[in-house]
Design a protein around this nucleic acid. Structure first.
Lengths: 194, 194
DNA sequence: ATGATGACAGATATTGAAATTTGTCATCAC
DNA sequence: GTGATGACAAATTTCAATATCTGTCATCAT
């Protein structure tokens, strides 16, 4: 039976399902409760507000991005290859998502825009992964930088056009790949030891 | 008398004034005509559509950005200093604009979002200015790159977070200046001859 | 002849009354 | 006692009627 006890986890699943079906504007707490066969008051027993529920859904989605990236960041391969794989995965994940299901991506975008704090933490997580890769590279002498955290943040910001959803409307441009290569080339040069 | 013959120029001035006052959503061609004391049919004699009028206003605004930058791009100072001044001017212009008059900036943003082609040309213009600076630097040996146009475009994209209006909501963040310095440091390193 | 007008049709936007939603909490069921 | 319920007030959204706007063009004025 699907209707065992009500848990935050089950509510999140239902919320994702409803969001997927109705979009961010038309999804209501009543809809989510209905999908679960409970009253909306019961949902409020597990999430203090609709905003908190939305934040939790956003966090779940962002984990889907950051967990695979964490695996890459900790792979036992050369730091330069690892850095490239990491950015490739970040960029292609976002791009595929935005193109294969634009409506769902728009939903994700709308949620993220309202869950600023959750997104901020996500970005911090990603930059921490970059720090891991940079540290490995500096230790083995293939990267030079006198300030790893600053450089990690700079790499993230310098590539924003290719992974920040606010730029998603450019991800189908024909020049996007060569533009990405151009920035990558520049950044790799910046990391080279003298 | 302000009511001499009706010209595109006078219509543009009136349109800017009305946009400034009412914002992009509530501005109508009828409003613009009223501001000029003419019928809206007369406006259509000079602009084929409301979209064309909007594009022309956008183009005018963007010229306000690109003309001062052109001056910097052609200054007779060291290419590295010139590059830095150019980006500083670009970044501070946008930032001041977005913070001193957020409503007008939002208006500009809304117009630009609908005038894609005009914006595309604006970006091409800016990248051409970067090419000028890079060429000077390569000629005098202070910059290295084997592909000036690609590098110019990469520099523009890598700094998008600090000048692309889609990122304007981060321009008041306290770390924005150090983030900018971080990216700048990286990019300068990438341009250094071996 | 040149340029401005305003009536018009179809498309779009506004408005405010009615319906729905959010979040609370006294009550209910087990 | 624990957890779910649904009635409720306040806030928000929906909807359809009404008004306005866009773009055209036959007509007017100079």
């Amino acid at each position: 039976m699907t209707d065992s006890t009500l848990t935050p986890e089950r509510i999140l699943e239902a919320a994702e399902e409803v969001l997927r079906r109705y979009g961010p504007d038309k999804t209501t707490v009543v809809d989510v409760a209905r999908a679960l066969g409970v009253s909306h008051g019961s949902v409020y027993r597990h999430f203090p507000s609709k905003a908190a529920l939305r934040d939790a859904v956003t966090e779940r989605w962002l984990l889907g991005v950051s967990l695979p990236l964490a695996a890459v960041a900790n792979e036992s391969i050369s730091p330069l290859t690892r850095l490239r794989h990491w950015f490739d995965l970040l960029v292609t994940t976002k791009r595929r998502w935005s193109q294969q299901d634009p409506e769902l991506f728009a939903t994700y975008l709308a949620l993220a825009a309202e869950s600023r704090e959750v997104v901020r933490e996500h970005v911090t997580t990603l930059i921490a992964q970059l720090i891991t890769i940079l540290n490995a590279g500096v230790a083995s002498g293939v990267f030079y930088t006198d300030d790893v955290p600053t450089t990690a943040r700079a790499l993230f910001h310098a590539t924003a056009r290719f992974h920040d959803p606010v730029h998603a409307n450019h991800w189908a441009d024909p020049e996007i790949d060569s533009a990405y290569e151009g920035v990558w080339t520049l950044l790799v040069r910046a990391l080279q030891p003298d």
